[in-house]
Design a protein around this nucleic acid. Sequence first.
DNA 1: TGAAATGTTGGGGCG
DNA 2: ACGCCCCAACATTTC
Length: 487
Amino acid sequence: MSLAIVWLRRDLRLADNPALQAALEAHEQVLPVFIHAPDEERPWASGGATNWWLNHSLKALAHSIARASAALIIRKGDSLAELRSLVKSTGATAVYWNRLYEPAVIARDKQIKQALREDGLIAESRNAALWFEPWELQTGGKEPYRVFTPFWRNAEDRLREQLAQGRAPLAAVHKLKSPMKLPESQALEDLQLLPKIGWDAHFYTAWTPGESGAQAQLGRFLKAPVASYLAQRDLPAVDAVSQLSPHLHFGEISPLQIVAAIEHLLTENHAAGVRKNAEGFLRQIAWREFGHHLLFHFPQTPTAPLNARFAEFEWRPKSAYASDLRAWQRGETGIPIVDAGMRQLWQTGWMHNRVRMLVASVLTKNLLIPWIEGAAWFWDTLVDADLANNTLGWQWVAGCGADAAPYFRIFNPVLQGFKFDSAGDYVRRWVPELAHLPPSTIHAPWDAEPQALEQAGVKLGRDYPQAIVDLRETRARALEAYDRVKK
DNA sequence: TGAAATGTTGGGGCG
DNA sequence: ACGCCCCAACATTTC
């Protein structure tokens, strides 16, 4: 009986899992294994919120593996040492896994693959996380893409071609044959993934980690919101986006499954505009793909600007910005939609994308705080924290990355508030102290008549902070600072 | 996947 | 009837 180890990492699903499929095709028995090895991912070991997610995703995965008559083996420590110990105790002859794209992880996996092969084992990796491997797409000049639109044009064409030729997600696995005598496994609790302070209370009502939670979320999105995606995806008060990001990060669902589900929907629903809206949604999934492309080809970008000129940028010194950073993190900047976003993040581990752009613009441009600080905060607090997406997003806003917002594009959170949260519902939900302000002043309470503020039970500086910056002055200051980089 | 300043146009009030 | 001015509405440019 030949036995293969399936080394699960961030591909926590039984459907459309190429490594699992490869193991099943070539071996009689498979042993699914998860190894917790945060030291090997430094400096980007998963943060507090993603650890919470990982805990619950592993729990869900262990259940579905149990339903398939097998068991998930959990280990912690050195990945190679644990794999070797498992090989030794089970007599496994092969190890399969799906690829990841963070620089530290790529280096580790390469080393492990070589070491296992030198041990005389089969060691193979597959693509489970992307439509295309980062090295499969290149510009006409054989360079990696740095601009999204041509990247997407190419990717979309090739994706359509491949779908037409029958590329489709792999079927779900319902039955696994594991060895009779199972190797030792840690209990999930031994990984100590849950936060010690009770900061995750709201996470439980907001999310259902795991493969079936991911499918439910996709189903909910396809049932209605996708049809009006383009018109509503920028409205943070409306439940109009897929919220699949944490599920995608942990590989509970694959981009291929998503595009297949969309294609299926379009064969059934011919309503005008649905196709356009669905394509708009796929375009957003493609931003994730683009982020991975960039991270792979420019592995220094999690800590260094892609545009080298920005290495010189004069951010404020830490001693000057420390208290502003704290106010931003806590959602106490006195700018309503910014505070709403930061509090949504803290309470649910997630923030609407439109609002992410706003809070990031305020941090980097109005406050002149290095984008790295924002990225670090997001890394620890987002349940969907993902190195590729986080790096792309922050460098995009800061203006120093690929296809970046031009340096002069500075969001005005008040105007954005009126435009995308015109009734003020989003602010009202997350900043309840402003709940009684009318839509006309809720995004700029400092402009409200004193009497109107009093009527709404708000005294600035007492019930809600005075804004920590003047948006007009700091906009001008940012333009000057960015102008110096340009020269 | 901006915002603000500046320029242009055209309707209406008014002498 | 006409010219003048104001100013909203829209367009263009600049940052």
